[in-house]
Each structure stands twice: as C-alpha cells, then as structure tokens.
Amino acid sequence: MNSVIEFQNVSKRYGNRWALRDVSFTLEEGKIIGLLGPNGSGKSTIIKLILGFISPTEGSIKVFGEKIGQAALSRIAYTPEFNHLYRWMRVGDVVNFVKSFYPDWDDGREAELREFLEVDYALRVRELSRGMAERVKVLIAFARKAELYLLDEPFSGIDPYSRRKVVDALVKSLRAEGETILFSTHLVHEAEKLFDYVVFLRDGRIVLEGEADRIREDTQKSIEDVLIEISAGEKEGR
C-alpha cells in the first residue's frame, strides 16, 4: 500500500510552548485513521501541518510522497472543528464556491448528501445552527472524490441528532477504494466503529498507535476506554 502521510521527527513550537514533540508516523491509503487524544494534545496541529497551514519547527512532512503544495491540496478535503464558511454566503453559494475549485466534485454525491443531511441551500451561513453548519461542512467535503479527507473534531459541540447524521453520512460516503480519512476527535463513542487504525496523542507525543482491532484485542478494552485511560494518565501526570 502507498503511504499518504509521512511524518519524520516532527516538532512544532508556538513561542515557548511545544505543541508537538518528535512525532513520526506513516499513514497508508484506503484507511480510516483516528487521531485521538484529549484537548490540547496536538491533534489539530498535526492536521494544520499536513495542510501546510503551519510549518514544522523540526522534522519533515510528506503528503502523497511530496512536500505540501497546490497539487497535494487539490487531492485533500478538509473540515476544521469550527465554522470556517463565509457568513454572508448562502449555503448554495458556499457549495458553488468550493465546487468551482475541485474537478473531483461529484454532483450525484452532492445531491445524495444534500437530501440525506437535510441541508437547505437557501439559508445564509450566519443563520445556521452549529449542528447544521457541521452538516454543510461534511457535505462540501464528501461531495468530492478526494483521496484524503481531514476531519478535525467533526462532533465537537453539536447535538446528538446532527452527530448521528454526520457519522451516517461518513459511512454512506465511504465507497471508493483508496480514499483515506484522518479523523481527529476526543469524542470517540460515535466514531469507534469506523476506525481501521488509531493514533493516540498526549502532550504533543504519540503514546500508542496501531490497528484498532489489534489494540482492542491486546488491551481487552474499547478504543474509547483506552483514550479515557490515556487522558486520565495526563491528568495524573503519568
């Protein structure tokens, strides 16, 4: 299998604070990867580094075998944890705006997701609830046939109904082979069944990684319980 993302001894420092310390991993194509850890563990930093939003203080990053640039960005679909859509636009304008940049946009998939997620194109972004905004973000990401999907905390602060809709939309959209999803979250319960591979982070370091089934088998615990244990370890300073 080809590697989609390669991190080699990557560290990132903001001022005097290290957000990431000496992180190395390789993620292969066609998998759903959970990037798990408590708040402030470095999950979003990893996603921003992949997108080239920030540069590593140390180490090197390769996406699709090369340094991040326009070519790699055209193969990535990204949704951040907050609403990053233009508030003055109508949902339909947002869809058309994003669509015009990506030749891999699939109109059929868009129509299907629009109906399934119950998205109203006539509404303005500023009128959307948090849950609905999340559904729009998922729609504009998964209406594409991208090779890599980066989802940063897609369940953060949204209602259970929207959360369920988002998970179901993800399951529904995962059809094509070779699509890789990197999914960062600290709310594992809904997404646990989706993961093929998981990376656990704490204090900017990888503390555990591997096939999800293997970890469940080895620890005799669910992924959620392993995460709780790791988070508790952070609080106790272990």
Binding site: L51, Q70, S74, P80, H84, Y86, R87, F101
Partner: peptide, 14 residues
C-alpha cells in the same frame, strides 16, 4: 477574525 482562512488557504490556488 471569522477563521475563513481555513477555507481560503486550503483551496488549491496560489
């Protein structure tokens, strides 16, 4: 301010 940089800078444009 509105964090729309995350949409704008993730687009495949120079």
């Amino acid at each position: 301010r509105h964090k729309t940089t995350h949409l704008l800078f993730s687009l495949p444009v120079p």
